[in-house]
């Protein structure tokens, strides 16, 4: 799946486009769309895998680029890449849409009842979003500028039994249960118990990170 992505723009290309936008070049928006639209849509569709979300992803990315082209001042290049900034902006909108839909329908949107790749079958849209947002956050906020409380909280999670063992795998976007089972030392367990345990630990990790994210917002 990862090899299937269209390449994201290089930092040099990002800088060129950003400069054009700042200078108010009338074609800057066209360059922005050409460089970011397709790779962003592809990246997000690999996270929000359900086909019913694909139109939403298209629209959210287009709206994100449309908004950004008119208000480039809200991006601070010193804080990280434009790619991650835009990706996080779009993620935020998709998460909000998913939350609104959840509230409207009165139940959690679950992907259990839809056709998905096996590894993602039990993940809610929110979980998928967190999975994707977290590494982007860490990249957008340079290591040296992480708030003290964040570093401390992350270290606590990293040092926690079980959670620490899977943290790096999860952050790298690894999906295969076998890798997690090996990290947890349960590779010899029966398949169903192994899957159950991995899911349990991943859920705990996500809950901890979600709470941490809420504190930071």
């Amino acid at each position: 799946m990862k090899d299937d992505y269209a390449p994201k723009p290089t930092r040099e290309r990002e800088a060129q486009i950003y400069q054009m936008l700042v200078e108010g070049h009338p074609r800057a928006q066209d360059h922005l769309v050409r460089a970011f639209l397709f790779p962003m849509v592809q990246k997000l569709k690999s996270v929000y895998t359900h086909h019913s979300l694909h139109d939403i992803v298209d629209d959210v990315v287009i709206d994100t680029l449309c908004r950004f082209g008119k208000d480039v001042g809200r991006f601070e290049p010193a804080r990280g890449s434009l790619w991650h900034y835009l990706l996080m902006d779009a993620h935020g909108d998709i998460r909000n849409l998913a939350k609104s839909a959840t509230k409207r329908s009165g139940c959690m949107i679950s992907l259990d009842d839809v056709e998905l790749e096996p590894a993602e079958r039990n993940e809610s849209i929110e979980t998928q979003a967190i999975n994707a947002v977290w590494p982007a956050f860490l990249e957008y906020v340079p290591e040296g500028q992480h708030p003290e409380s964040l570093i401390e909280a992350l270290n606590t999670i990293r040092n926690a039994p079980e959670l620490g063992a899977i943290f790096d795998l999860w952050q790298e976007g690894v999906r295969e249960t076998d890798h997690y089972a090996k990290a947890l030392g349960i590779q010899d367990w029966p398949s169903d118990k192994r899957k159950q345990k991995v899911k349990q630990v991943k859920d705990r990790l996500i809950t901890r990170l979600r709470r941490l994210g809420e504190k930071l917002q």
Binding site: V33, R34, L37, F38, V41, D58, D59, I62, D63, L65, C66
Partner: peptide
């Protein structure tokens, strides 16, 4: 996607 963006 570019056509869709142009419409929007």
């Amino acid at each position: 996607l570019r056509r869709r963006a142009a419409r929007r």
